[in-house]
Simulated scan of single mutants.
Amino acid sequence: MHWALAFVTTVITAAAVGCGGGVDSDNTGGRGGSGGAGGSTSSSSSSGSGGEGGDGGGGGAVASCPTKEGTVFAVRELFFGEGNSGEWKKFGFNVDGQVSTGLSSDVCMPNSGGSAQNAHPDGDDGIDNSFGKNLLPTILSLYPTWVQDVNNGIQNGNFTALTKVECLPASGDAPALNTLLFGGTALGAMPKFDGTDTWPVEPALLSDPMDPLSTTITFPKSSVTGTLYDSGKNVQVILSVPVRTANDSTSIKLTLYSARMTMNLSDDRKSATSGMIGGVLNTEEFVAEVNKIGALLSLCGNPLFDNLVNQVRQASDILTDGSQDPTKTCDGISMGLGFDMVEAQLGDVGPANEVGMACQ
């Protein structure tokens, strides 16, 4: 059971790798740190100054890049917000535009007998990150080296996620850019993180499995202001990540809705730090992916695994579209992650990840 929970979390994080963000005035968090479990319950929700409504970066403009050239970045390290002093509160964004507590009356109803006192208290300035608050501490209590092991996977070249920012200028602002997102499969060597690593592209997100540039995940209203890259608000991210045991393997597909990513570019625009991603996992879609882990580990029908699935549902704190409605049951789990990226190269299409069975 402990390993099931560890695998589940590793999958979530590895899949969210490609998105990120930087510190700005719209309720972003910093890199590093740790996440506690809990939050204030002293008042009802109110409209937060860092609400996530609107289109975000690009001001509604649609980017055009006739040459289709661009700078490719690969995730080098992930940051989860683990710890015992509420570090999770700095990871993510105020997705629903509210500052909620366990006593808020303008939020969705708890899922599967969950507690509003656990699900709804927000992080700093309304940051939504139920994953960091409610799931991450449990993971780490069962698997203390999980964060280190996930980052070791990146450092060893087992996986990454990649973005290609088309027509990124060498300096100055860019109010309208198009960004492409890719999954990176096994590099086949230790990455150098010096701009020369050529990562194979996972085909699951490609419209043409023979064309490594044909990703279906784009951010057409991304922008750069000063050093801050912003994907724009309300983007959708889909990532496919392989999970393996000694004897079998499967592939987990994660979709993050109502998402946003930001990151701070270096002066030469060949790396990025203080990355941040925030968004919403649809609860039942995520449960379906968790059930693949259950089957991989032969845990189908195990009462402990069934309890884990129920705990996942109880972490729901938001609606999938990033809104709140007190007449509806929460069907999404908010999530925030940090990361750093470095320049890299896109390679050819790699082998497709296997998709295994799932518990029913």
Score class of each variant (00 low, 15 high):
residue 145 T to G: 03
residue 177 L to A: 08
residue 194 D to M: 03
residue 178 N to M: 12
residue 176 A to Y: 04
residue 192 K to V: 12
residue 115 S to N: 09
residue 132 G to K: 03
residue 98 Q to A: 09
residue 112 S to P: 00
residue 146 W to E: 07
residue 169 P to D: 09
residue 130 S to E: 05
residue 165 V to T: 14
residue 98 Q to C: 06
residue 200 P to I: 10
residue 93 F to I: 09
residue 119 A to N: 03
residue 151 N to A: 11
residue 136 L to I: 11
residue 202 E to F: 05
residue 93 F to D: 07
residue 191 P to Y: 05
residue 118 N to D: 14
residue 135 L to T: 09
residue 186 A to E: 12
residue 182 F to T: 01
residue 181 L to I: 15
residue 145 T to S: 15
residue 197 D to N: 02
residue 119 A to T: 09
residue 108 C to Q: 00
residue 138 T to L: 14
residue 92 G to R: 01
residue 164 K to V: 06
residue 128 D to R: 14
residue 175 P to Y: 05
residue 95 V to M: 02
residue 180 L to G: 09
residue 179 T to V: 15
residue 189 A to D: 08
residue 172 G to P: 07
residue 157 G to S: 12
residue 114 G to E: 05
residue 93 F to S: 13
residue 97 G to Q: 06
residue 143 Y to R: 14
residue 187 L to C: 09
residue 90 K to Q: 15
residue 193 F to S: 04
residue 175 P to C: 08
residue 154 I to F: 01
residue 157 G to L: 11
residue 130 S to L: 02
residue 171 S to G: 05
residue 133 K to N: 14
residue 145 T to H: 11
residue 171 S to E: 13
residue 176 A to E: 01
residue 179 T to E: 13
residue 117 Q to W: 10
residue 144 P to H: 01
residue 112 S to Y: 00
residue 200 P to F: 06
residue 194 D to S: 09
residue 153 G to Y: 10
residue 104 S to E: 07
residue 104 S to A: 08
residue 176 A to Q: 04
residue 197 D to Y: 02
residue 158 N to C: 07
residue 153 G to D: 12
residue 115 S to M: 05
residue 106 D to E: 11
residue 112 S to W: 02
residue 154 I to E: 00
residue 188 G to P: 02
residue 155 Q to K: 15
residue 150 V to Y: 04
residue 136 L to A: 08
residue 192 K to L: 13
residue 194 D to F: 01
residue 161 A to I: 07
residue 174 A to I: 10
residue 123 G to H: 01
residue 118 N to F: 07
residue 190 M to Y: 09
residue 158 N to E: 14
residue 184 G to L: 04
residue 99 V to L: 13
residue 139 I to L: 08
residue 134 N to E: 13
residue 104 S to M: 04
residue 91 F to V: 10
residue 89 K to C: 03
residue 131 F to A: 05
residue 164 K to R: 14
residue 107 V to D: 02
residue 182 F to M: 11
residue 179 T to S: 15
residue 164 K to C: 07
residue 181 L to V: 15
residue 127 I to A: 04
residue 128 D to I: 11
residue 113 G to E: 03
residue 109 M to T: 15
residue 190 M to I: 15
residue 146 W to Q: 09
residue 133 K to E: 15
residue 172 G to M: 03
residue 89 K to H: 12
residue 100 S to Y: 03
residue 201 V to Y: 00
residue 120 H to E: 15
residue 193 F to E: 05
residue 100 S to V: 08
residue 171 S to N: 12
residue 128 D to C: 06
residue 126 G to N: 08
residue 144 P to S: 03
residue 142 L to T: 10
residue 142 L to M: 13
residue 201 V to S: 05
residue 89 K to E: 11
residue 130 S to Y: 06
residue 198 T to I: 08
residue 99 V to N: 12
residue 131 F to N: 04
residue 134 N to R: 12
residue 162 L to N: 06
residue 162 L to E: 04
residue 195 G to A: 09
residue 167 C to T: 02
residue 94 N to V: 09
residue 127 I to D: 00
residue 107 V to K: 07
residue 156 N to D: 13
residue 166 E to I: 01
residue 125 D to V: 12
residue 170 A to C: 04
residue 126 G to E: 05
residue 110 P to K: 07
residue 194 D to G: 03
residue 164 K to P: 11
residue 140 L to I: 15
residue 147 V to H: 10
residue 195 G to N: 02
residue 199 W to V: 01
residue 95 V to D: 00
residue 179 T to H: 06
residue 108 C to K: 04
residue 129 N to D: 14
residue 147 V to S: 13
residue 176 A to C: 15
residue 139 I to R: 11
residue 178 N to A: 13
